[in-house]
Simulated scan of single mutants.
Amino acid sequence: MAITSGSPVVLDVTGLTKSYRAAGEEIAVLRGVNLTVRAGESVALTGESGSGKSTLLHLIAGLDAADGGEIRLADASVSELSDAGRAELRRDRLGLVFQQFNLIPSLTVEDNLVFQSRIAGRHDPDWHRELVERLGLSNFLKRYPEQLSGGQQQRVAIGRALATRPLLLLADEPTGNLDEATADEVLALARDLVARSGCGFLMVTHSARLAATLDRQVNLHAGIIAAVIA
């Protein structure tokens, strides 16, 4: 999918702030972050350790509450939702992929893939078949997570996250547990499927090499967006 300035904005972050108390002192992690992601666009979020990348991702996902500012996911203000509303948002409109694969060990690959879409009432058999084929999982559907390699497990995690056709896919160091060749392969698949589904994609990464493969790079430094590389 070609990204143009006319593509709808799926994520709009404005003036976001977040502080934590540590050893009796207030630490400002985010100090007024502004960020947008459009439909079909892939954005790498980079920055040194402690710059607030994972904090920002968790706030967008509604896993934590911001101190100030606003997060809008399409027409929904994440900041104004209740805990139940944020859980519903994660279930129906967000895909989440982490460094740890977080698959359900007692379920087969196939059942892991359809888990979220069935709970959300958004299971699409045709899209499921396409995901299985594109992720190269056809021969592994009856296996359990422990019978898969790390790369295969992360493919399942990506498929599960995209099965609901979310508005936005959030990924926190999704290739951190993979070797370089597998990381390249898994990320290429993710980019292809994001473009195919038309959702936005925001990925936290320490890797400048992987960041450069996405449409845009956003650098977070000292709690603010310091640079944008298109």
Score class of each variant (00 low, 15 high):
L131H: 14
I71Y: 07
L210A: 03
A76Y: 12
G52C: 00
L107K: 14
D92V: 14
L57K: 03
L210R: 04
A76W: 15
Q147H: 14
R165S: 09
F115C: 01
D12P: 01
S106M: 09
K53L: 08
Y20S: 05
R196W: 05
A230M: 08
L135V: 00
D126E: 14
L167P: 10
L107V: 05
F115V: 00
A161S: 14
L30G: 10
R122E: 01
A76T: 15
A181G: 04
R191M: 09
F115D: 00
R129V: 00
R196Y: 05
Q116C: 07
S42D: 03
L16Q: 05
R143M: 02
E41Q: 14
E185R: 15
S149Q: 12
L131M: 10
Q154D: 09
L107Y: 12
F201N: 13
W127N: 11
L210M: 07
D83N: 14
N112S: 11
A163G: 13
A157G: 05
E88M: 05
T14V: 11
A171N: 00
A171R: 03
D124N: 05
V109R: 14
R91D: 06
T46F: 03
Q116Y: 02
R86K: 10
R165T: 10
D192F: 06
F101R: 12
A188C: 04
A171M: 04
L170C: 03
E146H: 15
L178R: 11
L131D: 12
T4V: 04
D192I: 01
